[in-house]
Design a protein around this nucleic acid. Structure first.
Lengths: 192, 192, 192, 192
DNA sequence: CATGAATGAGGGTTCATTCAT
DNA sequence: CATGAATGAACCCTCATTCAT
């Protein structure tokens, strides 16, 4: 057990270091040497855990995406009424994006930049299936507008990325009341 | 006149080349040498028109942002009713984002990445003032929900960036009917 | 006449500009573009007056060296007694080195650096002939020690370069009294 | 111990290579690539031992200056009579300048050129203190003329730089007899 | 497992020089 | 005569990656 943990330790440290550097300075200006230093490790050590820089970034992306999905569906289960289910997921995602700022910022950067290999990016898309299923159900029950999943996503989850970015730049801080209003707008946008 | 045009020619060619390379391969992997080659120019020539790479990127950002604003408010004037005015602006922006794909993609990348100097990024924010004024009017007339501009933007304009990205990845093509539905969702999200 | 002067004007301006830049920043960091700008001329214009950068430097060296020699022998004539003649020349050189600081500094830099083509440097050496003749006479009359011209030079004229450098760095300012003492030391070093 | 030596090896090789190239071709025309090649090392390796080119030059300057001082005061001790002490130091310096030609030439170039950072240059000045103390003593005992240290230096040590340069250009070779005469001139210049 | 020294390839940038005007 | 735009070559430096230890 101890050995396995040690491995995870350094791997995690490297992923964390990468996250911070890429977030704060961009993919360029996040050299392997700095990543190593920030992780408290020698540069060559990185290559024991990752094939190369691209693999490191890809791995980080998938790791963060997985953690995101895990949070997104916390407390959610299949049988719930559409609005209730949507509410749970939306608030979960909002919590994630507005609290786990670094992770969310990194995902934003990946989604708007060609730094992630396309194949890997596609793999990251599969995580939202339960939400897509819920929307399908909502459309059938004529509670949700007959719009494609893309549009539903664009008007409910995606706006949170903007609010995150704004908050990150310290222009603004989203309190509980505003969060409720934001949810209301999301729901208004897609409900029939 | 001829000389001035020639200058503009090369400068424009350089900006275009940068746009394409940064869009398709990211800021890293858009070396000056490739930019020069794509623009049909020697690398050293870039430095006749821009101080350095950062200045080139910043200039491109401001140029594109200006063109974006110009399109956003085409045919719009101050006195219009809130919904009508909003409709005009929204469709303008939708047209821009879904047709001038390269420009819009580049702006997305800049807004989600630390490649633009902060001072320059702030300068780019000033362009939306007429829309903000319109929203203020809408709130006063109790047509628009009493939400901050950030939230209004997040639920109306920002979703278009997602639709653009989706379309760009060829998963989807937004036709006129869907565009109308998308507008409806935007309006539903913020109207009282 | 006017045209000739105009030519001389620009040529002189270029030589002056080069002198200043090389003195203050070194041969490297004295690019042709800056030289041109300081001289109020386009870069390409330099090549109307000089073959290339090396020729510009060489020309400057010879020009300054000529001006130096001219000053060195002002008021001197062949028939004078050895000590009197030496005194005149020494004071002339001292005046030049301690007043025409830029020129003297430049000569120092050239003499201690491989920036001047060797052939040109040798040509610059011929200018001191009258002093060498005077020394020859002094040795014959057994007023001056039987030392080679190099050593005589090293102990009389060359020390002034050091005093110049010191003065230039503002550590020190040589007044008339000290100058007389300095001359005394020079004479003591070589007189029998 | 072995590792430390290896490090010193490459660092020394780089300093040596720099010395040679700067001496023979000047600071410009001593590109990092050539320095590396002459040291038997890849260009990037230089940056393991020095921050940048300026740091390399500065380090070389301080290294050589230290070696110079060490030689200058070999066999000298404080209590010696003024003339005897001066003789020892003068001959030490003469030996250094006329034998360790490369080092001395480099120092000359540094002292007459703005290639060394000023702060570093000043640090190099501190090394001659024992000689300055000796002169102070000589002035008090009325053996040495009441001249500033600068002038004393100009007429005793500095002339050796000229003799070095002459010798380096192969115009001349200073044998023991001439060296004694040169010392006599130095002493004549400053003794009362 | 872990490392730090080492590097080849390539990055951004400068510059002496040219050429059409 | 004079120019300024243009450039090829070279410069300094960085960095992802490797390899002996």
């Amino acid at each position: 057990m101890e050995k396995k943990e040690k491995i995870t330790d350094k791997k995690t440290a490297l992923l964390d270091a990468t996250l911070n550097l890429v977030n704060n300075h961009g993919f360029h200006k996040a050299p392997m040497s700095k990543i190593a230093k920030l992780a408290g490790v020698a540069p060559a050590t990185i290559y024991l855990y990752f094939e190369n820089k691209q693999d490191l970034i890809n791995s980080l992306y998938l790791t963060v995406k997985a953690s995101f999905s895990e949070h997104a569906f916390k407390g959610y289960e299949d049988g719930l009424p559409v609005k209730k289910g949507f509410e749970i997921i939306w608030y979960n995602i909002a919590d994630y994006k507005l609290n786990k700022i670094d992770e969310a910022t990194f995902l934003s950067q990946c989604d708007n930049t060609p730094i992630i290999d396309e194949a890997v990016a596609e793999e990251g898309l599969k995580h939202l299936q339960p939400l897509l299923d819920l929307w399908e159900k909502g459309r059938k029950e004529e509670i949700v507008k007959p719009l494609s999943n893309y549009i539903l996503y664009a008007y409910t989850v995606y706006p949170l990325s903007f609010l995150l970015a704004i908050q990150e730049k310290n222009y603004y801080k989203l309190n509980d009341e505003m969060r409720q209003k934001a949810f209301q707008s999301a729901w208004d946008a897609i409900k029939i």
